[in-house]
């Protein structure tokens, strides 16, 4: 959030109430105001693809507003007609006719002259898991498998804590280099990767998934991703060759425990 930008826009919008511009100017000012808030008021900046979609919706809404009342349409039409035919606007009209194409030209120019960039990739972050996986030759049914230590949370908190501590050791020996001290996906190595490692503090990652899903992702890593989540450039190793089954379940416990998230519970099938 960039409070200053938002504040400035709000002040200008408030000022509009006293200026009473005509409908066309009103819509234009609103469009620009909203654009400024979206473009500069949000930190980190939103991707241009989203900004484009948002501004399109805002345009639609403003058109709806201007055309919803007969007198407002008239006002806009009158303004536009006056602008085109009244001699007093001759200079402004001329400027518009010159500047508008120039603006488009500039847009095209800046679009073409930028640094070459990797193409936009929309990856499927959470592809559907397979029904079962083979872990070191053992079949694990992902639909039914549960974290064997999760039950201890209620029944035997001390042992549960011990397993969480075990998970902590696993995490700091293996995961921390990429996923970071604070599990925000910003470890030492994170900056070398694209995509960057998953941010477990984000409430929309692990909290939305079942523990079996995490088990699958940890055990199989990037090589085990289904084709539909390609292009996938993930550097996540297949941990099944390095960690035991228990260690994976323990580190899952620790990740949830540390981030204070709860795993998604599988729904009762009825």
């Amino acid at each position: 959030m960039n409070i200053l930008v938002i504040l400035a826009v709000v002040v200008v919008m408030f000022g509009l109430r006293f200026l009473k511009p005509n409908a066309l100017a009103w819509a234009a000012i609103w469009w620009i105001g909203v654009y400024l808030v979206f473009r500069y008021g949000v930190d980190p900046p939103m991707p241009t693809s989203i900004l484009g979609m948002f501004m399109f919706i805002i345009s639609l809404v403003l058109v709806a507003y201007v055309t919803a009342a007969n007198d407002r349409i008239r006002e806009v039409a009158d303004t536009l007609i006056a602008f085109f035919v009244n001699p007093e606007y001759k200079v402004a009209l001329g400027l518009t006719l010159v500047l508008l194409p120039l603006l488009v030209a500039f847009q095209v120019y800046s679009g073409m002259s930028g640094q070459p960039q990797a193409p936009l990739l929309a990856r499927t972050i959470h592809p559907p898991p397979p029904g079962s996986i083979s872990y070191q030759g053992k079949q694990i049914d992902l639909l039914t498998v549960h974290n064997p230590f999760r039950g201890l949370e209620q029944s035997d908190p001390t042992v549960f804590e011990a397993h969480v501590a075990g998970g902590r050791a696993v995490y700091y020996q293996n995961c921390v280099y990429c996923h970071g001290d604070n599990m925000e996906g910003d470890g030492f190595f994170a900056h070398g990767f694209n995509p960057i490692p998953a941010n477990f503090q984000d409430p929309t990652t692990i909290a939305m998934l079942q523990e079996s899903y995490l088990f699958w992702r940890i055990a199989k890593g990037a090589p085990g991703l289904p084709s539909e989540s390609t292009p996938w450039l993930s550097a996540m190793p297949a941990w099944e060759t390095f960690l035991s089954e228990e260690e994976i379940w323990e580190v899952i416990l620790f990740i949830y425990d540390y981030t204070e998230q709860r795993p998604r519970v599988s729904e009762e099938v009825h």
Binding site: P47, I50, Q117, L120, L121, A122, P195, N199
Partner: peptide, 29 residues
Amino acid sequence: ATPHSLVATVEEARKMGGAHHPMLGVLGV
């Protein structure tokens, strides 16, 4: 209309810290 995982350039994704925008990502669920 806000998607959960956004289409972003590498540059933009770095600034956001992932494919999820810290503010917009919240609106995507």
